[in-house]
Computed example of a mutant assay.
Amino acid sequence: MTASGVRIEWLDEIDSTNEESRRRFRAGEIGPLWIAARRQTAGRGRRGRAWADLSRNLYCSGLYSLKCMPGEAAQLSFAAALAAAEVCQSALADHTPKVKWPNDVLIDGQKVCGILLESADAPGQVVQLVVGIGINIMAAPDIPERPAVSLASLGASINPATALEFLVERFEHWRSVWAREGFTPIREAWLARAHGVGQRCLVRLENETLEGVFTDLAADGSLKLELAGGQSRLISAGDVFFPGALG
């Protein structure tokens, strides 16, 4: 249990901490609870992508029952990104982790952390939120189109258990800010760490690909994309690619 009173449970092996979280919700768990695994056999990322299982990295999911609309709960992906970036920052004095829309943490343009928020079926006005986070502590996957890096390769010395405790504390901080003050302070803190603001990028949507300039983060967390001719578009879901990196 952390200093903030949030429970933490470590498992030796699980298919996916997100899937285990959903099972816990179905069994009556209401959270807050963070589940971490020393090994995942079927981890996944956004859009069903496989999540590489590498030894001594951090794989974890937080379970939260929230009284809010699903769209509001989704704003906590930005809180999770801030918390994860702060964990990486605590281990690396000479690097400044950046957050990449919608849910990655980068160091020197390379991915060090991914985040996947999901919801479970819940009755009434309650959103059962699963906050899945993976941090490359000791190793990074070799995926050419999505360059990745580990904290250890940059000289950091931090173990998964220590990283998780700090992650939970920082997520609780930002979740409390969100609960008291709404999304605005989260948005401002996220923008202060944002990768690519003012840069050209490609945005791949389900049925089209757009090119433009990432100008801002909208009040609801959407990406503001300025297209050719001065038109703008709000992107609520998609994959963003910046020059010099494919992912």
Rank of each mutant, 00 (worst) to 15 (best):
Ala42Cys: 07
Asp121Phe: 14
Asn18Asp: 01
Leu116Lys: 10
Glu72Leu: 08
Arg24His: 11
Leu58Trp: 06
Lys67Tyr: 12
Arg47Trp: 15
Phe78Thr: 03
Asn136Trp: 09
Thr41Arg: 11
Asn57Phe: 07
Thr96Ile: 14
Ala91Ser: 11
Gly28Met: 07
Pro141Glu: 11
Gly31Glu: 03
Glu72Asp: 13
Arg23His: 13
Pro141Ala: 01
Asp94Ser: 14
Leu129His: 02
Ile143Tyr: 08
Asp15His: 09
Pro102Asp: 05
Ser90Glu: 10
Lys100Trp: 10
Ser61Arg: 00
Arg24Pro: 03
Ile35Gly: 04
Asp15Trp: 01
Leu117Pro: 06
Asp94Arg: 11
Lys98Tyr: 13
Lys100Ser: 11
Ile135Arg: 02
Tyr64Met: 12
Ile107Gln: 04
Ala81Asp: 11
Ser65Lys: 04
Ser119Lys: 14
Asp108Ile: 08
Ala83Pro: 02
Ala81Tyr: 01
Trp51Glu: 08
Arg46Cys: 05
Ala93Ile: 09
Ser119His: 11
Arg46Met: 04
Gly45Cys: 04
Gln75Lys: 13
Cys68His: 05
Ile115Gly: 02
Lys67Pro: 06
Val131His: 08
Gly114Arg: 04
Ala120Lys: 00
Ser90Ile: 02
Met69Phe: 14
Gly132His: 10
Leu92Asp: 03
Gly114Phe: 09
Arg22Lys: 15
Ala152His: 08
Ile137Asn: 04
Gly43Ala: 08
Val130Lys: 09
Asp15Cys: 10
Ala148Gln: 10
Leu33Trp: 11
Arg22Tyr: 10
Leu92Gly: 01
Arg44Ala: 08
Ser90Trp: 05
Val87Asp: 10
Leu54Tyr: 06
Ala74Arg: 09
Trp101Val: 09
Ser150Arg: 04
Trp51Pro: 05
Arg24Asn: 05
Cys68Glu: 14
Leu54Ile: 08
Pro97Lys: 01
Leu92Tyr: 07
Leu92Cys: 00
Arg26Gln: 15
Val99Trp: 11
Ile133Lys: 03
Ala81Pro: 08
Ala148Leu: 02
Cys88Asn: 01
Thr17Ile: 05
Ile137Trp: 05
Gly48Asp: 05
Ile30His: 15
Asp104His: 00
Asp15Arg: 10
Pro123Thr: 07
Ala80Asn: 04
Ile30Leu: 15
Ala122Arg: 03
Thr17Leu: 04
Ala120Pro: 06
Asp94Lys: 13
Glu145Gly: 12
Lys111Ile: 05
Leu151Phe: 00
Ala120Phe: 01
Val130Asp: 07
Ser55Pro: 14
Glu13Pro: 00
Gly62Cys: 06
Glu20Met: 12
Arg39Glu: 12
Ser21Lys: 06
Arg26Cys: 11
Arg39Leu: 11
Ser90Phe: 06
Thr96Trp: 14
Ala139Ser: 13
Arg26Lys: 13
Asp94Ala: 15
Tyr59Leu: 06
Asn103Cys: 09
Tyr59Cys: 03
Pro70Ser: 01
Ala85Phe: 07
Ala81Val: 07
Asn103Lys: 04
Met69Val: 12
Arg146Lys: 14
Tyr59Lys: 00
Glu72Phe: 05
Gly134Asn: 02
Trp101Asn: 06
Arg44Gly: 09
Arg38Gln: 09
Val127Thr: 09
Val149Pro: 00
Ile135Ser: 06
Lys67Arg: 15
Ala84Cys: 08
Ile14Asp: 12
Ser153Thr: 07
Ala122Phe: 10
Arg23Gln: 14
Val105Ala: 05
Ala36Ser: 02
Lys100Gly: 03
Val99Tyr: 11
Gly71Trp: 13
Glu13His: 02
Gly134Glu: 00
Leu92Met: 03
Asp121Pro: 14
Gly114Ala: 09
